[in-house]
Design a protein around this nucleic acid. Structure first.
Lengths: 205, 205, 205, 205
DNA sequence: AATGAATGAGCATTCATTCAT
DNA sequence: GATGAATGAATGCTCATTCAT
């Protein structure tokens, strides 16, 4: 029985790829990735047959990593706002804990490397958060928009917040809170806010 | 200041680069870019000494293009909300008119190709909108945050909206309005929304 | 001399290699060869220390296989022509039975992988047929040529015939006979045929 | 106007490839081929987009080179035998002049790199010799066989002769003549030779 | 022994950049 | 200036061989 394809090594590849890509972009050579993972080039290709496969695998890995960080342990019952806040804080904390992960996730997403299947799997990975998003959508200003638009909007705000936090980690609390304020306002604002023809004083009063 | 042949060709390179990069990502070969611009590779390197220089130039070009689209003609006086709405609509319209521009802008921004100088120049290009952002910041929930955080937040919402619009151009009005609702709520929400400890019923009622 | 497990596996490797190389050429990876033989790569290298050794071994194996097919059972006494015809028919039949063998033999022969020793051993393997070739040479047009030249000539005709037969197996009889006609004529023609200065009418009349 | 893709350089590539492949087999690295041609790797790929394209181009080049050597200057009228002898001598002389060409031709032919189109073009290149082959077939022992079988048979004899000559160039005359004797006998032998059931004494007398 | 993962030299091909024309 | 061929370093991937199990 030969040495066995180890989950540990596969994980090392994914971590090495995250570091290398965060540093050098998607152009990071497979050789760098392998080195970063403590493996030889040849071994890298035992775990992922092509660089594209590696990027797809890495994307899914990171999405699942994020999903797990957000939904586990389960968020205790309570008012939507409290649950949303808890989810948000976990999200930002995930990004602060390892900013590379978030950066790489965005890089891969912006590339043309993702297969449709991977994209679908990526969405499926976030299922745990679906209910929360749907709840947020109902009765709010995004009620008439596709759910994806709301998810993308919240995701963009999270990305912005994570980036700000990764630049000034000591401001975590402040940025995280401010970001949530924006998110919550965006998804819960009542009609008056969206009435573009209205005088603004009323909103300020 | 007559428009010389060189100016025209330089512009052609920038446009060709936008198309090529939107299609193939930042890995688009200089040869493709030249072909797309109707030039030879050799000539391309007469206008930009390196690919990095081209990317920096393209970034600035697109930023200025956006800035011009947003601030010209001058937005007429009026309540902040109306001016913000007008700026927002111009912004989204710019993205809808040529989604490639926005995509390429994001790609370059996410890369490591930008020099500090270019980044600074990019910020300077948006000067026309600074006053508006500053006004939005004052007295709102972002008052305690760096201005850049607010700008980044609004920018992220704009990007999300433009992407949604570029996918479904016929929904321009709906997405544009919904996006602005979110933006306006985010920057104008009062304290109650950000008080994470507050019961949410009030907001729902 | 009991047939051990090892002998069986070695034979399996040789057969697998024949299939793999017939399919993919000499570039057939050792991994494919092992797979075709129902073995692991690692095991393959227990039987042959290098790919070159495998090719040399395979060459010899095929040569001996051919030799055995041609000389066994012994060709019964009789006029040279009848013995030659019987040998020829066995040769072509061997090639028709498994065209891969002939193809692989040619591929290896044309490569630079064969050692001098293997080449010598290959010649030795055909010893059974030597007497026949020598007999054919004596008193014929090749009497003044090296024996190898005659052997090579006949071999080339056999190869051509086998290839034709492998393309149209149903024409076995016709091609086999035609090939032999050519061989026999080539080795038995009298001086008149080789007299390049002679008028040809005589041959045509 | 930049340097122009030169026929001279293309020819240099083909010659370099012939040398490199004759030396190292089809596995000869493109880098070696380029070096042998006095070019950089990059330039090689300006002339042939892939190694496969190069091999196809080389095959055609060599076939045409051979065809030209055999049919030019036109063989003067005369009895078939004299014309055949002249063609044969030119053929063998071509092989003797540069044995690499013949070897490489055989290597490529035996590989899987040739496209159907190239094979067809290769046949077309030999058109000049077609009439001769057809004339040889008519009324001879190959009259009932496909023309290709005759062509392949004669080709095999030529290859064998060329190889023998390349090994002992000083024996050119002897081998060339002996080879032709075999060829002529093979294509002109009358029925008695091919009657496998006949007593052989008659042929010896 | 048998297995197949690990290794890294080697290969075809690409591409930013240079330079002869 | 313009052109596109020339250059060669760099890259993704393969594969003979080794070695841990």
């Amino acid at each position: 029985m030969p040495r066995t394809l180890s989950d540990q090594r596969r994980a090392a590849v994914l971590e090495g790829a995250t570091r290398a890509i965060a540093r050098d972009g998607l152009a990071a050579p497979t050789a760098s990735i392998a080195a970063e993972a403590g493996l030889s080039v040849g071994s890298l290709f035992n775990y992922f047959p092509t660089k594209t496969a590696l990027l797809n695998g890495l994307y899914l890995h990171l999405k699942r990593d994020l999903a797990a960080a957000v939904v586990e342990p389960p968020i205790s019952d309570g008012p939507l706002r409290e649950r949303a806040w808890e989810g948000w804080r976990r999200w930002i904390r995930w990004g602060a804990a390892d900013p590379d992960k978030q950066r790489v996730l965005m890089l891969i997403e912006a590339s043309h490397e993702l297969t449709d299947q991977t994209r679908r799997d990526g969405v499926a990975a976030m299922q745990g958060a679906d209910a929360l998003f749907a709840e947020a959508q109902a009765g709010g200003p995004f009620a008439d928009q596709p759910l994806e638009f709301l998810v993308a909007t919240v995701g963009a705000l999270a990305a912005t917040t994570m980036e700000a936090v990764s630049r000034e980690p000591e401001e975590f609390d402040s940025r995280c809170r401010a970001g949530f304020t924006a998110v919550w306002a965006a998804i819960r604002t009542d009609g008056r806010l969206s009435d573009t023809g209205t005088e603004e004083k009323r909103n300020r009063s």
